[in-house]
Simulated scan of single mutants.
Amino acid sequence: MATPLPNVWHLRRVADTAAKSCLICHKPSSSVLTTPNNKDFFYVCPAHLKDRHFCSPVIDAKEEEAKKRAESMAKEIENVKKEYEEKQKRKKEKQKEKKEKEKDDSKDSSDSKDQSAKPDADKTDKKERDDKIEAIKKAQSTDTSTSDDSPRVFALHKNFYQMRIDRIRNMEAAKRNRQRLQDPSFFPSVPSGGL
């Protein structure tokens, strides 16, 4: 017979007003462990989730990889910002030097044409930087699904897992018994015939 439920439990949170007693200590808890197919669930305190004798977190390789990508993208965003700021400082220094040279030399209108082209270059640089940052942020938002660092998937230890399996089997047996009792063919029939 196949296992009635896998030993994979997802942590869900409910509103504080919907909190029910913890399976272990019977204190009100708003944390719920559920199976992926929602066949079974129970309330448990967050402190019990850290107990190594109750359950252990299941580390998802994809999730870990997504976190690493998010961190690298955040670093990349910082690098892009720093590069942009350095470029802006260099441009400002160059503009100051040119203005000083212009004051000294007072050249003809060709210099004024170059100055009018520079603000356009600044705008394109800003636009490129903003586009890069937006693209990185979009990729980062799609990669990371949770901002909470606590694990979201757990595996119960064998005793607690066996308790949940036994509970489900008992519920199914009780359901079958109720159905049998409602079926009139379950009971023996009255003997017919004479004496």
Rank of each mutant, 00 (worst) to 15 (best):
residue 32 V to W: 05
residue 44 V to C: 02
residue 48 H to Y: 08
residue 57 P to V: 03
residue 20 K to N: 08
residue 16 D to H: 12
residue 46 P to S: 10
residue 54 F to H: 01
residue 14 V to T: 10
residue 47 A to C: 10
residue 26 H to Y: 13
residue 54 F to R: 01
residue 10 H to E: 12
residue 14 V to L: 02
residue 49 L to W: 04
residue 5 L to C: 03
residue 9 W to F: 15
residue 31 S to I: 07
residue 12 R to H: 15
residue 18 A to H: 14
residue 10 H to R: 09
residue 52 R to K: 15
residue 49 L to V: 04
residue 25 C to M: 10
residue 11 L to E: 02
residue 27 K to F: 10
residue 52 R to E: 12
residue 23 L to N: 02
residue 17 T to D: 08
residue 26 H to D: 11
residue 34 T to F: 03
residue 10 H to I: 08
residue 47 A to T: 13
residue 45 C to T: 01
residue 13 R to I: 08
residue 36 P to R: 04
residue 31 S to P: 02
residue 3 T to C: 08
residue 6 P to F: 10
residue 31 S to L: 12
residue 46 P to H: 09
residue 53 H to T: 12
residue 12 R to S: 08
residue 45 C to K: 04
residue 37 N to S: 11
residue 42 F to D: 03
residue 9 W to V: 01
residue 39 K to R: 14
residue 39 K to A: 14
residue 42 F to E: 00
residue 32 V to H: 04
residue 49 L to F: 09
residue 28 P to N: 12
residue 11 L to A: 05
residue 24 I to A: 04
residue 25 C to K: 13
residue 11 L to K: 06
residue 57 P to S: 08
residue 38 N to P: 01
residue 43 Y to I: 02
residue 45 C to H: 07
residue 32 V to E: 01
residue 42 F to R: 00
residue 9 W to P: 01
residue 39 K to C: 11
residue 9 W to A: 00
residue 47 A to G: 07
residue 32 V to S: 03
residue 48 H to F: 10
residue 27 K to W: 06
residue 13 R to M: 11
residue 46 P to D: 07
residue 38 N to S: 09
residue 54 F to Y: 10
residue 6 P to W: 05
residue 53 H to A: 13
residue 4 P to R: 13
residue 51 D to Q: 14
residue 39 K to M: 14
residue 6 P to D: 13
residue 37 N to K: 14
residue 20 K to C: 05
residue 34 T to C: 08
residue 23 L to A: 04
residue 24 I to L: 08
residue 17 T to M: 06
residue 37 N to V: 06
residue 41 F to R: 04
residue 46 P to Q: 06
residue 37 N to M: 08
residue 53 H to Q: 12
residue 7 N to H: 05
residue 21 S to P: 11
residue 31 S to G: 08
residue 10 H to Y: 15
residue 46 P to V: 03
residue 43 Y to M: 04
residue 57 P to T: 01
residue 32 V to D: 04
residue 51 D to F: 09
residue 17 T to I: 12
residue 4 P to D: 13
residue 22 C to Y: 09
residue 28 P to M: 04
residue 24 I to H: 03
residue 33 L to A: 06
residue 16 D to C: 09
residue 16 D to R: 10
residue 42 F to I: 00
residue 51 D to V: 06
residue 56 S to G: 14
residue 24 I to G: 01
residue 23 L to R: 01
residue 21 S to V: 11
residue 14 V to P: 02
residue 56 S to N: 15
residue 36 P to L: 08
residue 28 P to F: 11
residue 41 F to E: 02
residue 53 H to I: 05
residue 14 V to R: 05
residue 5 L to S: 01
residue 32 V to R: 05
residue 11 L to Q: 03
residue 40 D to H: 02
residue 5 L to N: 03
residue 33 L to K: 02
residue 6 P to K: 14
residue 12 R to K: 15
residue 19 A to E: 00
residue 38 N to C: 06
residue 4 P to S: 15
residue 10 H to F: 13
residue 7 N to C: 05
residue 10 H to Q: 12
residue 40 D to G: 00
